[in-house]
């Protein structure tokens, strides 16, 4: 393999994808995050943090879609410029679903069990814990939205060593 760790590019690089809001795909998203970050040159010590943070943000997005009973894709975008930036966007236009809404849901898309109070309570806990974990883990964290037209976006960034364009290819 002849590719260098960092591509020789002058402009920002973007990796963008979307996934069905199901638990099974959160792992794929966090693994892609760590891989893209590694390829961007993020220091090894931060890769676990990125994997964890992107996983938490995607988990939160899936839970929010599940709460609102929407099947829209969860959108993920990584960009590599001065910093490594990750953005995870959901399409749930409420700030927080109530546990009662979860209990009333006739169908939860296969992952959750709507008649399972323990699972629902733990999901509620998990959604709250995701933000606590993100707040503690990520120095540069912004959660924006929701509004009438879109859901929330979790934006996070991490430093890249040597922000000048590399000439070592």
């Amino acid at each position: 393999m002849s590719a260098s760790r960092q591509d020789q590019r002058t402009g920002p690089v973007t990796v963008r994808f979307a996934f069905t809001p199901a638990a099974a795909y959160v792992r794929a998203a966090r693994l892609v995050a760590a891989d893209v970050a590694s390829h961007a040159g993020v220091v090894t010590g931060l890769l676990d943090e990125i994997r964890q943070a992107v996983g938490e943000a995607c988990t939160r997005a899936v839970l929010r879609h599940r709460d609102c009973n929407i099947d829209d894709l969860v959108r993920v975008e990584f960009s590599i410029g001065d910093r490594f930036v990750a953005k995870i966007t959901d399409n749930a236009r409420v700030m927080r679903a109530q546990p009662e809404q979860r209990l009333a849901r006739p169908d939860s898309g296969g992952d959750a069990r709507p008649n399972d109070h323990d699972a629902i309570e733990e999901d509620t806990l998990s959604e709250e814990i995701t933000l606590i974990v993100l707040g503690g883990l990520v120095e540069d964290l912004v959660v924006s939205g929701p509004d009438d037209e879109r859901g929330t976006t979790v934006s996070m960034s991490w430093p890249l060593p040597g922000t000048a364009p590399s000439g070592d290819h």
Binding site: Q52, T59, D118, E121, E122, D123, L125, I129, I132, V133
Partner: peptide
């Protein structure tokens, strides 16, 4: 190898 907030939720429950 890895635990996220969902895992923490299970521990609390």
């Amino acid at each position: 190898e890895f635990c996220d907030s969902t895992g923490l939720g299970v521990l609390i429950g």
